[in-house]
Nucleic acid binder design. Structure first.
Length: 1139
RNA sequence: GGGCCUGUAGCUCAGUCGGUUAGAGCACUGUGCUGAUAACGCAGGGGUCACUGGUUCGAGUCCAGUCAGGCCCA
């Protein structure tokens, strides 16, 4: 059996598709998984990807890491779960389904019906789960993927006939259930495949979590003023708004007057960017430490802060100056005191129950209050306070017992009690308000104002701040002292400190992740977990219609037990709206009817629970213990500190007070090649499918791996081209080289009796050629380092080491060994070369397999499976190669490095002297500094051949070659002399270098006079460097100097010409499209005497180099391949023809 | 305003324990080699290591501050 030929023009992308077919046909993933059953576990828990759109290339980045380390640990002999996750519930899916259906608001959804709407959400998730699954498979990501046709089928059935009973094949046999329930059981053990966060198990596990939170006393129903999306008609939590929300927007800000009641004729000057909130003004705040001034301006007396004078229009005169605290308590008339809302005692908030203890109306309450946060950077230094329209305002209302006016309903229209504003949409009232203020004579000015303003992270609608009634998890107090001083009792009361303790047990890669997470936890607000929407976790909170008491249901069993009505309206459905809303419970307190709150849950609950739900915490605790905590999880850092990582840790802390993972591996943000974020509208976005089919996924994967994960990654085709050129093509060429010559020689590896398919290359071959031993040492050295790097999730270091190895392999080993492969005789050295390169490549391929699974599979199929009957079917079934430390000969590595260095300098010297390498030269002089490795005769041969010189001479007294440079050994002498060191240095520099060198070489100390003292320096405290002496044909670095003898004798000149002829004939062979092994006839004709002599004298050499059987003098026949050449100005006609 | 990260060649990035002349790849220029050819080698030009101060015999590296960019939180 021989190797299959390697196509010259390989289509890597086509080849990847062939490999995908091969894996599918041979069920390669499943066989790999079976091989590792029962081995020690390596637990990876996947962070769920939102199944709402096709994958982006940034997902490809994260998934490359996940696949790389999964494959690595698999090869290391671990059993893994290989379960991908899909995030399914929440507003992002709803918004897209609304778009599909052309809906404008929540009312449209209600009219359409919750049941069909929810089913459409499920269908959308199933559709995109199947698309993302196909894309992940294309990436080469080996997971326990679902049958995507089945997912599409379920998506269709859930729309058409959710109650139809179907049977699907699971890992342990067929499962029969309704379509709705099969969908609700996806990812569970009986069905296998990816987990879906809409599964029954995920939802009920969250119920269990929430019940535990409730039992600990950390669940509460709260009132707060929060960002609210008018279109989605829901509050936006802190998790959602912080990054994705803010946009640079221009609004019209207004400056207006509040007439003071106790100081007639004087006004407060107030500024706001949200005019609609003036409708609900209750108070005005000043900074108690800030200085305020009364000015006469435009015929009015105005109060504002001294630092804000610049915003006055026209001339002004300062009349009075007071500190802010002196203004506190002054009363004023508000701008909308004519409205019923402002005149209602206790405030006006018809949609939300809240009690601040205020009995007054807003009109009665208008006064100046102190507030430390007031600044002078913008505005007038006097802040208008509307407790129903701002989060901080709301906090102040609690402190000062101010009444609250909440002007907006769920759709952000003004509620009753607002007179002419009632029924108007919040974004449409600015003009009317300005007019109204003007009419009232209290408008000062209106100006455009640009600021970062929060918008909805899903639909980009500008948010408003609205008084809401939501459910929260209490994060506990922040104690004003270092963490280590927090007592156990205090910790018991504060979830945030408990989470921090959990986070302490996690290894963060990169390390700064730890600090970021702790910072988030210290600043984290209470977690708002409710959302007034339709598609998502049904929060299991049942509230009594009569007394308001509420109960948290912990799972489906408790639900059934406690249900007093409505069970038949729920039975058979997944725990989603609308069916779960049918259930009625009986109130423990008063016996009244309890109904579920309509809210659904925050989607990070869905993702955070997976370390319990997917590991069968409720149903198979033993299994959970085996896989929890995860060894490793990974997501992109930005955002996930407050999202998935946070929810994962918070939920594990509540349920088990343990860390759900041992390590967190994070990476930064993917940018377009131009350094900006990818945006379709900017034309710099790249679709995953397009990238995969244009650059190839092996290239894409290597690009991802060859990057420091904490840095943002610039992604694009130029970089991909570079990776292909620098890495993939050279790698392929080495493989091509081996196969080409092995086929010519009919060489294949012999099959050993103890062939081990897990390590098909076998033990390191016993070879003697230093090149072979060197490259084997390099391979195992890099393998050892790669092993350590991958253990530490450091693919970047691994790829750097591997690329250096590839360079050594292509630019030195193969280059230097080429002749060993094409020489005619079949001797031991040739056999060794084959054995070495074959062994090396197979081991190399297996080391690369987790990085670039496709190209390595192709090579493995040819090199291994095509030869060994007992070989595993796929390279991905083999074990991680073991570095053979015994072959790592450090002295050989050093010597070869020196040989390469000398060669490089020799080439530089030739280049300086303008002497091309084909021209043989007599001698190379080399001087190497003391203590550096010397070269063995074999290595000298290599250098001599590479530099095309007849001899190499080491010079120990290289006056002609170099001059010396004497340097103190700072590392030793710095600490020894301290402040005196600069003078020692100067004294040493003043000595003649030759003298110092002589002493150092003789091992004698150098004596110096420094500031009257005698100082002795031992030879090891002095460094001797060389620099090239004057002259062109010399080159040097710090320890090596080389020089070449530039004299070209007639003999050397003749040999140079012969080599030139050989090169021309070689290129003619190629031009004539001869096979590499074809023997030929060669004709030559020239009128130049010198060249003719060379052709005669060197004919034997020319014939053997060019596989010429007959070297014929005279004009070539017309059917030969003929070229006219000019060699060193000499005309020659050459012809070649297959023999 | 607070926390974290980053700032090194035209571009993308390395730079170990603080040590003498700060590197690579790309791009550019020159040149060489060639059965790796969708290449490759060698050389060259290109640097205020963001800035200021400090510690030290010695700072790209450690410390403090400033500036700029990014992320997170107010």
């Amino acid at each position: 059996m021989t190797f299959k030929p390697v196509p010259t023009n390989v289509d890597f992308i086509q080849q990847e598709y062939e490999v995908l077919d091969f894996w599918k046909e041979t069920d390669a993933f499943e066989k790999m998984r079976q091989r590792h059953k029962g081995q020690p576990h390596w637990s990876f828990i996947d962070g769920p990807i939102t199944a709402n759109n096709p994958m982006g290339v940034h997902h490809g980045w994260g998934r490359t890491y996940k696949d790389l380390y999964n494959r690595y640990w698999t090869m290391r002999g671990r059993e893994l779960r290989y379960q991908n996750g899909f995030d399914c519930q929440g507003l992002w899916v709803e918004v897209n389904v609304e778009k599909e259906l052309g809906f404008q608001s929540k009312r449209d959804i209600e009219a359409y019906g919750l049941d069909p709407f929810v089913r459409r959400c499920k269908a959308r998730v199933l559709k995109y789960a199947s698309i993302q699954t196909e894309q992940s498979i294309r990436l080469g990501y080996w997971m326990d993927w679902n049958d995507t046709d089945q997912l599409r089928w379920l998506a269709q059935l859930i729309l058409e006939d959710p109650q139809r009973v179907i049977t699907v094949e699971g890992p342990e046999g067929p499962v029969t259930d309704t379509v709705e329930q099969i969908v609700g059981r996806l990812g569970l053990p009986e069905l296998g495949g990816s987990y879906f966060t809409f599964s029954n198990e995920n939802n009920y596990m969250i119920w269990t979590f929430l019940k535990k939170v409730w039992e600990k006393g950390w669940l509460y129903r709260g009132v707060d003023v929060m960002p609210w999306c008018p279109r989605c008609a829901t509050a936006i939590s802190q998790h959602e708004i912080v990054t994705d929300g803010y946009q640079e927007l221009t609004h019209r800000s207004v400056t207006l007057l509040f007439p003071l009641r106790n100081r007639p004729g004087e006004y407060l000057l107030v500024w706001t960017t949200t005019p609609w909130t003036l409708s609900s003004n209750v108070a005005a705040a000043v900074g108690p430490e800030i200085t305020y001034v009364l000015v006469e301006n435009q015929g009015k007396k105005l109060w504002l802060s001294k630092g804000a004078l610049h915003m006055l229009q026209g001339e002004y005169k300062v009349l009075e100056e007071r500190k802010g605290e002196e203004l506190v308590g002054w009363t004023y008339d508000g701008p909308f005191d004519d409205l019923p809302a402002a005149q209602t005692p206790g405030g006006w908030h018809p949609q939300v129950q809240v009690d601040t203890g205020a009995k007054q109306s807003a009109v009665e309450a208008h006064r100046i209050i102190p507030w430390e946060e007031v600044g002078e950077a913008e505005g007038t230094g006097i802040v208008h306070i509307a407790p129903g329209c701002g989060a901080e305002d709301f906090q102040l209302s609690k402190e000062h017992h101010l009444p609250i006016l909440a002007p907006l309903d769920e759709d952000s229209n003004f509620v009753e009690g607002y007179g002419w504003l009632t029924g108007k949409y919040v974004a449409d009232v600015a003009d009317a308000i300005f007019k109204d203020l003007e009419k009232k004579g209290i408008l000062y000015k209106v100006e455009p104002y640009t600021h970062r303003y929060p918008t909805c992270w899903r639909c980009s609608t500008e948010l408003v701040f609205r008084l809401v009634d939501e459910w929260f998890i209490d994060m506990g107090p922040v104690y004003d002292k270092p963490r280590e001083e927090v007592t156990p009792e205090e910790k018991e009361r504060s979830l945030r400190y408990q989470i921090m303790d959990v986070v302490d047990n996690i290894r963060w890669i990169p390390e700064f992740g730890y600090k970021r997470e702790i910072d988030w936890l210290m600043n984290m607000h209470d977690w708002m977990i409710s959302k007034k929407r339709y598609w998502g976790l049904a929060l299991p909170f049942w509230v009594c219609d009569e007394c308001g008491h509420y109960h948290v249901v912990g799972d489906e069993h408790e639900l059934k037990e406690r249900a007093v009505a409505g069970w038949e309206g729920f039975d058979g459905h997944t725990p989603h709206r609308p069916y779960v809303d049918n259930i009625v419970l009986k109130c423990d307190k008063c016996g009244g009817e309890m109904h579920r709150i309509p809210d659904v849950g925050n989607p990070w609950l869905d993702a955070g629970i997976v370390s319990f739900s997917t590991l069968q915490y409720r149903t198979n605790r033993e299994y959970w213990r085996q896989w929890y905590p995860a060894d490793w999880i990974s997501e992109s850092f930005p955002g996930q500190f407050r999202n998935w990582f946070y929810s994962l840790f918070a939920m594990a802390t509540v349920i088990d007070r343990s860390n759900p993972t041992k390590q967190v591996f994070g990476y930064a943000t993917l940018l377009a090649e131009d350094g900006r974020e990818m945006h379709k509208s900017w034309g710099n976005a790249i679709e995953f499918n397009e990238a995969a089919d244009r650059m190839g996924v092996d290239v894409m994967r290597w690009l991802y791996c060859n990057h420091k994960p904490e840095n943002n990654l610039r992604f694009g085709y130029h970089r991909a081209d570079e990776v292909r050129r620098r890495f993939l093509i050279p790698f392929w060429n080495v493989y091509n080289f081996l196969v080409t010559y092995a086929r010519l020689d009919g060489w294949t590896p012999s099959v050993p009796e103890d062939f081990d398919p897990a390590h098909p290359e076998g033990p390191t071959p016993a070879v003697s050629n230093p090149l072979d031993r060197w490259i084997l040492a390099r391979l195992n050295d890099v393998l050892a380092r790669t092993t350590v790097a991958l253990e530490n999730s450091d693919s970047y270091t691994a790829t750097l080491a591997i690329e250096a190895l590839l360079d050594d392999l292509t630019n030195w080993y193969v280059r230097r060994s080429r002749r060993r492969f094409w020489k005619g005789e079949q001797d031991q050295d040739k056999a060794d070369a084959y054995i070495t390169l074959y062994h090396l490549l197979v081991k190399f391929i297996r080391m690369l397999a987790p990085f670039t699974p496709f190209v390595t599979e192709v090579m493995y199929q040819n090199l291994v499976r095509g030869v060994f009957d007992d070989a595993f079917e796929s390279v991905h079934h083999t074990d991680w190669p073991v570095a053979d430390e015994s072959i790592i000969d450090q002295q050989l590595l050093d010597r070869m490095a020196l040989a390469r260095r000398i060669t490089s300098l020799g080439l530089a010297a030739r280049s300086n002297a303008n002497l091309r390498v084909r021209q043989p030269l007599r001698k190379l002089y080399v001087h190497v500094g003391e203590g550096w490795a010397d070269l063995t005769p074999e290595l000298l041969d290599i250098v001599r051949d590479e530099l095309n010189v007849k001899a190499i001479e080491f010079v120990s007294d290289p006056e002609t070659l170099v001059s010396y440079r004497i340097l103190p050994n700072n590392r030793l002498l710095g600490p020894k002399f301290g402040k005196l060191f600069p003078k020692v240095r100067a004294a040493l520099a003043a000595l003649p270098p030759e003298e110092v060198v002589a002493k150092v070489n003789a091992g004698e100390p150098v004596v110096l006079e420094v500031e009257g003292q005698t100082v002795e320096l031992s030879p090891d405290e002095i460094l001797v460097q060389t620099q090239p002496a004057e002259g062109l044909a010399v080159a040097a670095d710090k320890v090596i100097t080389v020089g070449i003898d530039t004299e070209i004798t007639p003999e050397l000149r003749a040999e140079g010409l012969a080599r030139e002829v050989v090169r021309r004939i070689q290129s003619m062979r190629k031009n004539a499209d001869f096979d590499i092994a074809d023997h030929i006839r060669t004709w030559w004709a020239t009128e130049d005497e010198e060249l003719a002599e060379v052709m005669d004298a060197w004919s034997e050499y020319i014939r053997s180099e060019t596989l010429t059987d007959e070297l014929i003098t005279g004009e070539p026949p017309a059917d030969a391949h003929i070229e006219r050449h000019k060699i060193d100005g000499k005309q020659v006609i050459l012809g070649v023809q297959r023999a």
